[in-house]
Amino acid sequence: MDNSFLAYIQKLETMAFFSGYALVYTGVLFLSGNKLFKSKFVDKLVLLLPYTYAFVGALFLGFQIRKLYPDYSPEHIRLLIQQSYLVIWGFLSIAFWLPVFNKRPVLSLIHSLVFFCVLAGDLFIQLTTPSADNNILKNDMKVYGASMILNLGVLGFLAILVTLYTYFKDKQMQHRHTTRRQKRHP
């Protein structure tokens, strides 16, 4: 097996995690800016976007750790991480858990555009080179589709989680209020 093939696979991996985020991000922002769709839920989704990105980053980190298991030696890491810049850039997405970054959701968009640019680069090569292998583009588009599903799935998962958390928290608060009132006016 050639190293360039491994590098290509790794490029696809990073794209599978992050390239679909940009479209999900702009889509959610479009909904929040549209009067027809504007609601509390959509606003909540906007707030969840950087967390979604960070969550996907965590999944990517887990995936790489799983791939390295059980040999975490530098040699093995060097052998497996062929697209070091892309992978490190992908790991940086975890930083969006930190309030300093997730308060600026646009940063997550900029971060993810790097991966979208990789896809756009392949598209450009396909457009300008008639003899280019179309299978590369086919793979890119499949991975891009999978990435959008992953990002939408994570966003949906986080939205459900937050909704449930809010619901139970509200219920608990209500319970406390009722208990306090009963204590005051038995």
Binding site: L137, K138, D140
Partner: peptide
């Protein structure tokens, strides 16, 4: 861009 990619692929 995505649409073009879809059509081209």
């Amino acid at each position: 861009i995505s649409g073009y990619g879809l059509v081209a692929s």
